[in-house]
């Protein structure tokens, strides 16, 4: 089956996972899926597990520009978008672009930024453009935001509201690597320097072509749509859940299932694609009832998924 640019992208994943990001195959794959389906990813884990390294390595391997925003409670929206500065020689204001004008933007500890900044950021993510002082600037393409947040820290943080969580295509953790891998990582030490000197493995044109293919050429049958719809409605009916997966959530599941099918070398979606992406794409959109707040959303969605029959005819 001829899937353009698939080999190149698989090569990126391979290289990243074997050389730079050992033990992070799931996170890398999901990041690539987010990139291919034009969404954004939220990495939720404790510090020091390689969230930033992941973002850096990804941008390095993909040959894309990289911008980083370290969120703090006094971060202003203009710190992200950029601002106009008066140029004396030309006697006019000149717009200086902020870090968001990059292909890959890492937003570290997004829950530390105050809501005003958060919403400005999320709006930019959704619209893919920034309006400053009446002028609209288009953000570069491809555009991927990798946001991180530490779920443990509670003091001085502003939790992302559910409505904003919905804007992230994927939420995933990284998790501790397995024992042997971790030992090897400890032995090898930090690889930040190597990452700085990484050679780009694909061009941004390749990525755009792959994105286009995923969007337009991967076939999604009505049976799969039914399956996704069933999943979405089941989450809405499930008793511990207050509000289930939204329609945008359904669209996102379908889009990322397409990207997953592309990575698996198929030009059509099968239920397994949906199953593979449903939890990372859907779980963070669930709002649980008050009395069930300590339930694990991933496990909950997984149990819903296990009760839906795949279409076999």
């Amino acid at each position: 089956m001829n899937l353009p640019k698939r080999d190149e992208i698989l090569h990126v994943i391979d290289t990243l996972v074997t050389k730079y990001l050992r033990g992070k195959i799931k996170a890398v794959e999901l990041s690539v899926i987010a990139l291919l389906s034009g969404g954004h990813i939220l990495l939720e884990d404790i510090p020091g597990l390689g969230k930033t390294t992941l973002a850096l390595a990804l941008s390095g391997a993909l040959g894309l520009s990289f911008g980083r925003i370290q969120c703090t409670s006094d971060l202003m929206p203009s710190d992200i978008t950029g601002l106009s500065i008066f140029n004396r020689e030309e006697s006019l204001f000149k717009f200086i672009k902020g870090p968001i004008f990059n292909n890959i933007v890492l937003m570290d500890e997004i829950n530390r930024a105050m809501p005003k900044t958060q919403s400005a950021m999320l709006e930019a993510m959704e619209e893919r453009r920034v309006t400053v002082e009446g002028t609209t600037y288009q953000l570069p393409s491809p555009f991927l935001v990798i946001a991180t947040q530490n779920p443990m820290e509670q003091v001085g943080t502003y939790r992302l509201p559910e409505s904003q969580m919905d804007r992230f295509l994927i939420r995933t953790g990284i998790g501790y690597p397995t024992g042997s891998v971790e030992k090897a990582i400890i032995k090898g030490g930090s690889i930040r320097d190597e990452i700085k000197n990484m050679q780009a493995l694909v061009s941004s044109e390749d990525i755009l072509a792959a994105q286009k293919f995923v969007k337009e050429e991967i076939y999604i049958s009505d049976k799969i749509v039914d399956y996704i719809f069933q999943l979405v409605t089941e989450t809405r009916k499930h008793s511990p859940i207050l509000s289930g997966i939204s329609t945008r959530g359904g669209i996102n599941i379908a889009d990322s299932a397409k990207a997953h099918a592309f990575l698996k070398g198929r030009n059509y979606v099968i239920p397994e694609d949906v199953k593979a992406v449903a939890v990372p794409v859907g779980a963070h959109r669930l709002v649980l009832k008050m009395e069930n707040e300590d339930l694990n959303k991933e496990e909950l969605l997984d149990s819903v998924l296990k009760n839906i029959a795949v279409p076999l005819v």
Binding site: I270, E272, K275, L305, I308, A309, V310, L312
Partner: peptide
């Protein structure tokens, strides 16, 4: 093998 099991799975 449950009804939720896909063929490829």
């Amino acid at each position: 093998i449950t009804p939720a099991t896909g063929l490829k799975e």
